[in-house]
Design a protein around this nucleic acid. Structure first.
Lengths: 113, 113
DNA sequence: ACAACGTACAACCACTCGGTTGTATGTTTG
DNA sequence: CAAACATACAACCGAGTGGTTGTACGTTGT
């Protein structure tokens, strides 16, 4: 795990640590939405929602494309999978602990058997 | 997804959004460690590490048990799996979008066939 | 042309975060 | 018992977060 990976992980988890952003991500994973369409769904200013979208974009969880005056946001499922993969790596460490506990019990007096 | 779930998710992702905390979680998933043992691994005060452990504990990603004067911390793999499951749910939303795109193309002129 | 719309960003504010030091309390060891 | 150790927590501080309003600018519709 190099420094850049940790930077990306910081951005991923920080982006996901806000419920409004998680909700935005759900919507744009399910389908493309303009920023103002998203903004209408929440009880906060357009600017606040626009900043949330920008955080998700900087984290690489969402991409935008321009269509006329609208910015259409789309969720990036590959990034979501990368975050999931990190959690799986954490699980693997835990499985390593179990394996070592097995070793502890497997004090086989006759490894030949 | 009810309010309590969102609260838990906030705590999970916030706890994971710091690289020191992710590193602590890796260690305590791999095996039990006392808080002071963990603290010796990082270039910061004991109090700072103790606070990181407390954040992970409040998020339910780690549990502590007392043994004499030491507090032994252990990672909770079930919580890690719950976080992973949330990411999987996000992926499912994306697959829903693909399914709807398939519907769009499946303009079958003869559904009987 | 011009009004309305959609976006982006700056400036500001209350609050939180990640670190510090200091203090209190319980536990182990000489 | 006294000294050293492990933990917990309060108080503080600079930096960052999540929200606001205001402004600027390109696009669309009448």
């Amino acid at each position: 795990m190099n420094e850049t990976d940790e930077d990306r992980a910081d951005a991923w988890f920080h982006a996901l640590a806000d419920r409004t952003r998680r909700d935005i991500l759900r919507r744009v994973l399910a389908g493309e939405h303009s920023v103002s369409t998203l903004a209408r769904s929440y009880d906060m200013s357009f600017a606040a929602v626009q900043k949330h979208v920008a955080v998700l974009e900087r984290a690489g969880l969402l991409t935008k494309r321009r269509q006329g005056r609208e910015a259409l946001a789309s969720g990036d499922v590959e990034a979501v999978r990368s975050v999931g993969a990190m959690l799986t790596e954490l699980e693997a460490l835990w499985r390593g602990r179990i394996a070592r506990m097995d070793e502890l019990f497997a004090t086989d007096p006759d490894p030949q058997q």
